[in-house]
């Protein structure tokens, strides 16, 4: 497809259980904003074994909701989902497709981009339009506090996966747009994998929604018991750097940053973290940042409202004491 195609802006609304992933709604909101600048229409597209749930999407302002359905699409399969979505895209020629950078979102995006022979910008943390109405996806993490703006000048649709938590989902409004349900043409050979079992996570944690986060890094020395206690006392959640999750001190889904999650709590308390850019992109949207680090030169202080230079251990104990209880 060429750069002149303009069947509008499509957003992949990824189903999770009976609803959608939060990032689906976040990018739908962003798409709405971009569509005003571009004067194009926004289509939210879903894939599944039935329609349903479209009314939820309609509350986020799309011009159209497109449901691609087939019994073989009940559970995510990269191969089958890419065929279903790819076929619809080849018919309607959207200029842009946004997807959430969830695990299944990426599983689908990588495959779909090849199917459509188009460019894919992955993991963006901000989206802008350049003068020529072209989308620029900014991707941090090339070291040294630099981010790269990636475009797809000639091929369409331009595909972008967006990190969860970087955009705020708009407030729900009254329903808009029409709903179209299309039965996909699909056979057994189009399916690559079949779910045998699913073991839901006991307590699923979503740091993008937390109001208060207490983050521990290498400087905690793995002593997360006190960090958990502090988070509990503050009614917040525990977050961690990659060093801490790689070491197995904390579950990987508590990792904050470029590979982890992008958070925007009211307050984040950052303990024993140096402040690498791959981490700080995950807290730059926070209301207030307080950091404790014994190294006065630590870059984290550049990203903090209040920085305490000192050993985190005694500070944590003193804070726990002043919050009352054991």
């Amino acid at each position: 497809m060429t750069a002149t195609d303009d069947g509008g802006l499509w957003v992949y609304a990824e189903r999770r259980g009976s609803s959608f992933t939060p990032v689906s709604l976040e990018i739908l909101g962003k798409a709405k904003e971009l569509s005003r600048q571009l004067s194009v229409e926004v289509t939210a597209v879903t894939v599944g074994n039935d329609g349903g749930a479209a009314s939820e999407l309609q509350r986020y302002g799309p011009d159209h909701v497109l449901e691609l359905v087939h019994p073989l699409l009940a559970v995510h399969d990269g191969k089958a989902y890419a065929k279903a979505l790819g076929t619809a895209i080849q018919k309607a020629h959207p200029s842009t497709l946004l997807l959430g950078a969830t695990r299944n979102g990426q599983d689908l995006a990588g495959r779909l981009a090849v199917r459509l022979r188009t460019g894919l910008t992955a993991h963006v943390t901000s989206l802008e339009l350049d003068g020529g109405r072209q989308l620029v996806g900014w991707v941090p993490g090339f070291g040294g506090g630099i981010e790269a703006g990636i475009t797809c000048p000639e091929k369409r649709p331009q595909m972008v996966t967006v990190r969860p938590g970087v955009f705020l989902a708009p407030p729900e409004g009254s329903p808009t747009g029409d709903v179209k349900t299309v039965k996909v043409d699909l056979s057994e050979e189009d399916v690559g994998s079949r779910r045998v079992s699913f073991e839901p996570k006991g307590s699923s944690i979503d740091l993008t929604r937390a109001d208060v986060i207490v983050v521990g890094g290498r400087g905690t020395g793995g002593n997360f018991g006190r960090i958990e206690e502090l988070a509990r006392r503050l009614g917040g959640e525990v977050g961690a750097t990659r060093v801490a999750t790689d070491a197995g001190w904390v579950d990987r889904d508590r990792m904050i940053g470029q590979t982890g999650v992008i958070t925007r709590p009211k307050l984040v308390l950052v303990l024993g973290v140096s402040g690498a850019v791959q981490f700080t992109v995950g807290i730059d949207g926070a209301g207030t940042v307080v950091a404790v680090n014994r190294d006065p030169e630590a870059p984290i202080f550049e990203h903090a409202d209040l920085g305490i230079v000192g050993d985190l251990g005694p500070v944590v104990e003193s804070l726990l004491r002043s919050l009352g209880g054991a």
């Binding site: 188009t118 460019g119 090339f142 981010e147 790269a148 703006g149 990636i150 475009t151 797809c152 000048p153």
Partner: peptide
């Protein structure tokens, strides 16, 4: 198909 349009 993708290009680096800028660094900042």
């Amino acid at each position: 198909p993708t290009a680096v349009a800028g660094l900042r």
